[in-house]
Design a protein around this nucleic acid. Structure first.
Lengths: 125, 125
DNA sequence: TAAGGTACTCACCTTTTGGTAAGGTGTGGA
DNA sequence: TCCACACCTTACCAAAAGGTGAGTACCTTA
């Protein structure tokens, strides 16, 4: 492992500066930087939540996309799905350890976007 | 367990846990987490580069998408375009200060994706 | 003379993404 | 009885993203 020094650096394998086309990291990157993926991971970084709460938090998401996004993130081992066989159904979603690790990187990014959004969009003529 | 120096937290405005649908940060987030946007910002974090070099680095990108992505990032004030009226044409692209700030957040994310990609994709049955 | 590099734009087409609307299950409440 | 809620799934369709291939204009190298 590399020590996390302050000046951000790419992994050594990227030292040639090329991001290979077939690289698996491209796929993973697509999942975690997807429109809804980011929001779901962010929402879950605040703690375990249920379907309907996630729907509310990621304002504007359709049920279809919520299901799809959650499935992808679960398959990626980022989100944990705990379904309880009770009536009415109760399903709790939370981050796995890996998901937490990731959300720790996502939060500063979203915060930055949030803080800079107005300035960025206003600066356009 | 991961030793979290500072527990990543969302901006206070997100305290209600809702990510508003019409929020400008959604737009900005879409730009910077776009498939090619990330790669271009990452490539430029290594320093000023020309069109053809960016094409090479972001392996698989089409000329159309390169142009489109660069334009969006330029409009967002993240990328600086310096065109020199020489023949053959020479155009240098670099990060603005704001772009540099952002790339500092993107690099750890991409590194993480790179380091975890295999484990993530292999763990799928 | 021809080919190739440089930095693009444009028109056309396909693929992917995402939205809408409906259905389904089982129960509790009006 | 009928609706509403919770947690989804499926079918269908529109919009957005992205690829392909051509064209531009000039210069350098072979």
């Amino acid at each position: 492992m590399e020590a996390q020094t302050s000046p951000a650096r790419l992994p050594a394998d990227f030292a040639d500066g090329v991001f290979p086309a077939g690289c698996p990291s491209r796929t993973v990157l697509d999942h975690i930087t997807s429109k809804w993926g980011v929001l779901i991971l962010l929402a879950l970084s605040e703690g375990e939540q249920r379907w309907s709460e996630l729907r509310r938090r990621a304002e504007g998401i359709s049920e279809k996309m919520l299901a799809q996004t959650l499935k992808t993130l679960e398959r990626d081992g980022l989100v944990l799905r705990k379904s309880q066989p009770v009536i009415p159904p109760r399903v709790d979603y939370s981050l796995t350890e890996r998901g937490y690790e990731l959300s720790g990187l996502l939060v500063p990014l979203v915060s930055w976007a949030y803080n800079n959004a107005d300035e960025i969009l206003n600066g356009q003529r």
